[in-house]
């Protein structure tokens, strides 16, 4: 990079630098990176520990004591770093890292799809205006206060069981997740659409696709970064929540929500709480890290989100 370019920084790189300098941004990025890495390297980490998330170890749990693991704090030891699951004796560390992987992959896929849909609709609303904006605006307003969770659960009943559960979960999450993106992008686009360079593009007969991709999109990068960073943790929470309720992934899949959901059964047996604590910390770290990073990005890009909640 030449010196001249380095002096004239783009707003994007300025905002990214502001994010990198803020404490919350750094902490959030560090936490998120750590957990994502653990998920990405799940097979490696499990191999390092020498355990398999699917292997049942009946000898490690006390059948005479409600299936509680032998040993202190849920059977934590050198071979089982987080102990084992009560009842089945599956290795908890392997389950948690594989669980992070499942949860994160589904959430990333759903977030990407929903942001693409939401950004396209939001841009179209803001740029095209007219009845298109009016009708979709009503719809978006309405969807915003919609009991989404009820319908996410209800939909499980009519989805054919032949479609794999992770795919179903991703699609339904994306189908309901695009609304907040569309709303935010819509307001931003409307402000942009009143600017001269958009007028110029319109007047010179630039094709619609070019206006979207080369004129609007580069000016929305910051907002999109904020949207991604803030809708990712929300998606993680809902996806894990559905699996927790037993209407998301199959109970046999290694997933943080499933793990926490199954822990209800064990909570009442009075077993050591490792089976709940470890997956919970992993889930909380993902959400917290992404929220911190998202908040820092929002401040840096100076994007006003809905009511700041």
């Amino acid at each position: 990079m030449t010196a001249a370019v380095a002096r004239a920084r783009s707003p994007l790189s300025l905002a990214l630098r502001r994010t990198a300098r803020s404490f919350g941004g750094r902490l959030g990025a560090a936490i998120l990176l750590l957990v994502l890495l653990a998920g990405l390297c799940a097979p490696l980490l499990a191999a390092l520990e020498g355990q398999d998330p699917h292997a049942f170890n009946g000898d490690l749990v006390d059948g005479n004591n409600g299936g509680n693991p032998f040993g202190s704090f849920g059977g934590v030891s050198g071979t089982h770093w987080f102990g084992v699951e009560p009842g089945t004796g599956r290795d908890l560390f392997a389950l948690v890292v594989y669980g992070i992987r499942t949860t994160v992959i589904i959430a990333i896929a759903a977030t990407v799809i929903s942001v693409i849909i939401g950004a396209t609709i939001g841009m179209a609303m803001g740029y095209l205006g007219g009845w298109f904006e009016a009708v979709l605006g009503r719809f978006v307003d309405f969807m915003f206060g919609f009991p989404t969770l009820l319908f996410l659960i209800a939909l499980q009943l009519i989805v054919p069981s032949s479609i794999p559960k992770p795919v179903v979960l991703t699609v339904v999450l994306a189908a309901f997740g695009w609304v907040s993106t569309a709303r935010l992008i819509h307001t931003q686009t409307r402000q942009l659409a009143a600017r001269e360079f958009i007028d110029a593009a319109r007047a010179s007969g630039t094709p619609l696709r070019r206006v979207f991709v080369s004129e609007l999109l580069p000016n929305l990068v910051g907002t999109l970064a904020v949207v991604v960073a803030l809708s990712f943790p929300a998606t993680v929470a809902v996806s894990a929540g559905l699996s927790f309720l037993g209407v998301g992934l199959d109970p046999s899949s290694p997933d943080l929500g499933v793990l926490i959901g199954q822990s209800i059964t064990w909570t009442y047996t009075g077993a050591d709480a490792g089976y709940l604590i470890f997956p919970s910390i992993a889930l909380l770290l993902i959400i917290l890290g992404a929220t911190l990073l998202g908040d820092a990005l929002r401040d840096a890009f100076d994007v006003r989100t809905e009511s700041g909640r």
Binding site: T267, S280, L283
Partner: peptide
């Protein structure tokens, strides 16, 4: 509030049961 907003309700509920209940 940052921690609590990030915390799913079911997680806090289960932890509360563990601590205050058991």
């Amino acid at each position: 509030s940052l921690l609590l907003v990030a915390m799913p309700a079911y997680l806090l509920g289960l932890l509360a049961i563990l601590v205050f209940g058991f």
